[in-house]
């Protein structure tokens, strides 16, 4: 089933500093409520978004990035789609980055695999030197 936009508008949040994480969480919470997600699903989406935004701060550094949030629909389902894109160095091995415990910066390596467990869909588009785009979707149950 094709995923289509419920409305043409999207919310954009720049991700350049730690202070932006608060806005990322706030916008995701607002859009999750608008889509009718349960409290648990709101919390999962906001937490996954917080992890992904922090990845941008850690890995993209000064290059920065942004979050785009959209209300989407697929058949009868309604949900939230959040796209995190950065202009950082990119991910060399996307498969490895999705493995629990894999980290290139000495963290626990929970960021990508952990985030994937919290949402219904997570996809990554990245190439070395060409930045990274991570798209997550959470559907209303």
């Amino acid at each position: 089933m094709a995923t289509e936009l419920v409305e043409p508008t999207e919310v954009v949040v720049p991700i350049d500093s730690e202070a932006d994480l608060i806005q990322v969480r706030r916008v995701l919470r607002t859009e999750a409520v608008r889509a009718g997600l349960s409290l648990v699903d709101q919390t999962k989406l906001v937490t996954a978004g917080s992890e992904l935004a922090r990845n941008i701060l850690i890995y993209a550094g000064d290059a920065g990035g942004e979050l785009r949030v959209e209300q989407v629909r697929s058949g009868d389902r309604q949900g939230v789609r959040a796209t995190f894109s950065d202009n950082g160095p990119g991910i060399e091995d996307v498969e490895a980055a999705l493995t629990d415990g894999f980290s290139t910066n000495g963290s626990l390596g929970l960021g990508l695999p952990g985030s994937r467990r919290l949402v219904d869909d997570l996809s990554i588009r990245s190439a070395k030197g060409a930045g990274t785009t991570v798209v997550i979707v959470k559907w209303r149950r």
Binding site: V40, Q42, T43, T47, E51, D100, L108, L110, G114, R117
Partner: peptide, 12 residues
């Protein structure tokens, strides 16, 4: 409760 569920799934 929502945070407990989320933290366990996240793997923290």
């Amino acid at each position: 409760p929502a945070i407990a569920i989320t933290l366990v799934e996240l793997g923290v």
